[in-house]
């Protein structure tokens, strides 16, 4: 396999998805509706959590909105990621996928082109969330560099989580299943992590689950960048969690895609 050829394949598929997105910009906002509702309403209803002394002690902030920003970012990433398989299903249905599979291009290129475009979409969405966060009075302790790190983590976690959606899409080739599997896994995981509540305030059994939940580590990295500044060990943990999810999900997708054909 020629690396330059593969790179050019990925770039052309990446560009194709970006073009499709630009022509239907509504898709950018579609995935944002739910996180926004949470950001605007949930934080209002639960703002009193910030007054709990142990909350302040554990998180370093008395603003629940600030703390919750990390959860909203994660939700944005995951709900965006989970729709990235939908595009593939459309391609299967339209016959475009067959066209790509008949072309002398690598299967992985087809998936990576899609994943990178999904990552870019998520970065745009997270940028919108951060701007709205500013409007709600959220400050980011790590500043501009921190925001860039948030974007990098966003892209990587977006790719890793998109892998799950691709896997379901490739296995089922069905829109509804791809969407519902996504929704069903995301919500419980969010509440079984340190994203909505600091670990120390979670009940024991939830803490145990949260400790093996990748959301926890990604959320803690975001929380630390937003509230405290740079705590590199947290970023490291997040990267490790993302790597594990990514290798499993993207690897499984590539395997399933190859097997389906040959």
């Amino acid at each position: 396999m020629n690396f330059m050829e593969m790179l050019s394949e990925i770039v052309s598929i990446f560009n194709r998805w970006n073009k499709k997105l630009v022509r239907q910009p509504i898709l950018i906002f579609f995935n944002l509706i739910q996180p926004l509702v949470w950001f605007l309403l949930f934080t209002q209803a639960f703002s009193a959590i910030g007054d709990i002394p142990s909350f302040q002690l554990l998180t370093g902030t008395s603003s629940y909105v600030t703390f919750f920003t990390a959860a909203v970012i994660i939700q944005t990433i995951t709900s965006s990621a989970l729709s990235s398989g939908l595009g593939l299903v459309t391609d299967f249905d339209s016959g475009f996928m067959d066209k790509m599979r008949v072309a002398p291009i690598s299967k992985s290129s087809i998936l990576f082109g899609r994943l990178f475009s999904a990552a870019l979409t998520t970065i745009i969405q997270v940028a919108i969330i951060i701007v709205i966060g500013f409007a709600l009075g959220v400050t980011i302790a790590s500043g501009m560099v921190g925001i860039i790190i948030i974007f990098i983590l966003t892209a990587l976690f977006g790719i890793a989580w998109s892998g799950i959606s691709l896997f379901v899409a490739l296995t089922t080739k069905n829109q509804e299943t791809t969407l519902s599997v996504g929704l069903l896994t995301t919500f419980p995981l969010l509440f079984l992590s340190a994203a909505v509540m600091p670990l120390g305030l979670l009940p024991d059994w939830v803490q145990q689950v949260a400790k093996v939940n990748p959301f926890t580590y990604v959320a803690q990295a975001f929380q630390s960048l937003i509230i405290n500044g740079f705590e590199w060990d947290k970023i490291e943990y997040a990267l490790i969690a993302i790597l594990i999810v990514g290798v499993l999900s993207v690897g499984a997708s590539i395997m399933v895609f190859r097997k389906k054909i040959s």
Binding site: R16, K19, K20, R23, Q24, D93, S94, G95, F96, M97, D98, K99, V102
Partner: peptide, 14 residues
């Protein structure tokens, strides 16, 4: 080879 499927594999957004 060239292949033209029954489903018409073109991208409608492009």
């Amino acid at each position: 080879i060239g292949y033209s499927s029954q489903d018409v594999g073109v991208d409608n957004d492009l």
